[in-house]
Design a binder for these strands. Structure first.
Lengths: 399, 399
DNA sequence: GTTATTTATTCGGGCCCCTGACGAATCAAT
DNA sequence: ATTGATTCGTCAGGGGCCCGAATAAATAAC
């Protein structure tokens, strides 16, 4: 079941090649694998035998109809390894996938409002349930990724500013959850993972330069540039609540909770509606509904929100040059909203950049978590650590 | 001289390891190399022999003083390969380095004002002179990088918007220059290269998250995030002239040349001084000098410039979370200016980020070009192409 | 039934890495 | 000056891995 303790680099590379072919051309014969990977038939065969013994692969039928001997077809076995994706927000969503990236199950429920340790307990419970349903065990999951709000320190993996869920920043989530579930846990910012979700299974598939603008309770940004997620020195890349847009950035409120956040965050939108003379509302959703129903005050607030969002988008475009901006979050994902933003943006940006609404919606976070968990598992099994890095340049010398 | 036509992956890795050790611990014996690389003495010795035969390496004396047999020390030979860095701006700067990154020579002169093909001719002439002085030949240079203003398309390598140097966008610079010099040429945006220069030899050494804010004729940004240069889909990342800062972004001037650029570009600064009632000036430098001499109007303009620059910096901080911002360009590199910007920024950003003035100044571009040329040469000789990429995830399946 | 074709395994050769042993060169001490 | 300890570099043997060729097995077409 575990990979062979030591494997030479050459063999590891062969294994990696074969695995990649299996991943993308699923039912495939040994002969075909040899052709696709460029390896010799024997090497391929040896690798497949090893995979078979590890339970990583299983035969599924034979070819037929073609001239010549029939070939046994193989595919990655669902028992070869599982990964778990978790999205911890207002709701708790957990999803289970196998090593081939097939999503086996998904479940969600409201997050335990007591937060902190209770939420972790809840995660363990939900994960255990999914695992049992699929005849595995949490401890047999090879890779777990947790989507959490707040800034995740890229070095320590600690959650440094967790709004919404109380007491999360004080816990060593990686250690606690890892112990509960018996597998390595990695935490990543929820918006970043939603972005990766859209890139894997959503509206940004196969793109290398995508920005994800999330408007919900707060405002946030995920950046995927040149095929990689952008985290920044403190994992705070994309914390655009502090962008100097929509007001005087030196004002007290701006400095406290961020200039843009003060205007475009959920409370900001409701406050603007109230200030405009609108009657009391207790959710942003209501403001949008009234706007659609013909309330001119609400429409003005929505329009201004779209304008500010477009300014944020223009800022992102000028800074990192994405080819697509995805709007997400409970506010941003509204389909009519994307159009409004796009219309303003047309007059702001030097060149047009496409804007789309998130297609995965609430699922984006878990899907992204799964994608990272999967990638980590693949890297663990078939990565070639020593080679990933480019050759470091020599330091300057005084000669 | 050329590397062996075919080498197995294993040997290529060994070569790479040994080369890296040679690069960083220069005069070093075979025995020491074996220890450092973790390879056996045998393998190390074979690799060194091969390097020696290729002329990549040369003996330089022996150890002495230690107990035991003396060891022959080796270092990378300057004849092992050369790289060329070129910065094509108002002045043309060319620098030559060897494969170990030792800068052998540097020369600069005003760029041929006729632009286009004449400038390319001038580059060839200057490169030829440097090469001759160091007993080599342009055609023996293994890697050439050209720093050019404008947006460089990351796929084609074409210069898409070249201000200042006339007719450059119309030429296929890579092909023309490559033919003239007989070596592969790569073009990269000058600001990006200045940033890489500061990271290699300047004020940002060994940092992984750096932004370079260039204020000169125009305004531009270079981004180095998580250890990699950020280019964006069209190579237009960092084109922050269009940031919606410093005015109404929907105004005619803003839409034409960019909102921020209109205020902070050289002509913008002079215009603002004029509009404030200042007497005629014909360079930004003059405005700064008058400010220092006590002209309150000029001081106001400088202060406002610093404020807008700080807003741009705050934008960058909120977006990509750098640990350092380097100010460069003829205006930005002024040491007093960085202080002014830092002071404003302190009140804008949620957490303090260091600001420094460029230490390489005008040389930053060439140095950065050298660093990229060097990296490309190293990758060409010792890269392991098949391993660079991470395993792609499988696409979603409909099952 | 025979033939052509495709699949899968076996065998020998070559590359490359590692370990252990050996001669060579040097310093330190007698 | 000789001896011993230490380090350097090379030689030889063993094992892992990859490849190409040959061979056996299975199947469609004729």
């Amino acid at each position: 079941m575990p990979p062979p303790p030591t494997a030479s680099v050459a063999r590891q590379l062969s294994r990696r090649n074969v695995f990649e072919a299996l991943l993308h051309r699923s039912p495939i014969s040994r002969a075909e694998l040899a052709k696709v990977t460029g390896l010799s038939k024997q090497t391929t065969s040896e690798v497949i035998d090893a995979f078979d013994q590890q339970g990583l692969v299983r035969p599924v039928g034979r070819t037929s109809g073609n001239v010549g001997r029939t070939a046994v077809l193989y595919e990655l076995s669902p028992e070869g390894g599982h990964v778990l994706g978790i999205d911890l927000g207002a709701r708790l969503t957990v999803a289970l996938a196998d090593i081939a990236g097939r999503v086996l199950a998904e479940a969600d429920e409201p997050t335990d409002s007591r937060g902190g340790a209770w939420a972790l307990e809840q995660i363990a419970r939900l994960a255990g349930r999914l695992a049992r349903e699929h005849h595995t065990h949490p401890s047999r999951m090879r890779s777990i990724v947790l989507a959490a709000p707040g800034v995740v320190n890229p070095k320590s993996g600690a959650i440094e500013m967790a709004p919404n869920i109380s007491g999360l920043g004080l816990l060593n989530v990686v250690a606690l959850l890892g112990e509960k579930l018996g597998s390595p846990v990695v935490i990543e910012n929820d918006i970043n993972l939603a972005l990766l979700g859209e890139i894997w299974h959503g509206c940004a598939q196969n793109l290398a330069n995508v920005a994800f603008l999330a408007l919900g309770t707060g405002v946030g940004l995920g950046l995927y540039v040149d095929g990689r997620l952008v985290r920044g020195e403190n994992g705070a890349a994309g914390e655009i609540g502090y962008l100097p847009i929509g007001g005087d950035p030196l004002q007290a409120e701006s400095r406290l909770q961020g200039c843009l956040e003060y205007q475009v965050g959920a409370t900001g939108i409701m406050r603007r509606y109230r200030e405009a003379g609108g009657s009391e509302v207790d959710s942003v959703r209501e403001v949008f509904e009234r706007a659609q129903a013909g309330d001119p005050l609400a429409a003005g607030v929505v329009e201004e929100t779209a304008r500010l969002t477009a300014l944020a988008a223009a800022t992102v475009i000028a800074t990192v040059d994405p080819q697509l901006i995805v709007l997400g979050g409970s506010v941003g994902a509204r389909p009519d909203f994307a159009d409004k933003v796009a219309r303003v943006l047309l007059r702001l940006a030097p060149r047009p950049v496409e804007i789309r609404s998130s297609t995965l919606g609430k699922r984006a976070g878990v899907v992204g978590a799964l994608s990272v968990a999967l990638r980590r598992l693949h890297d663990e099994l078939f990565g070639v650590a020593e080679l990933a890095a480019t050759l470091p340049l020599p330091p300057p010398r005084t000669r």
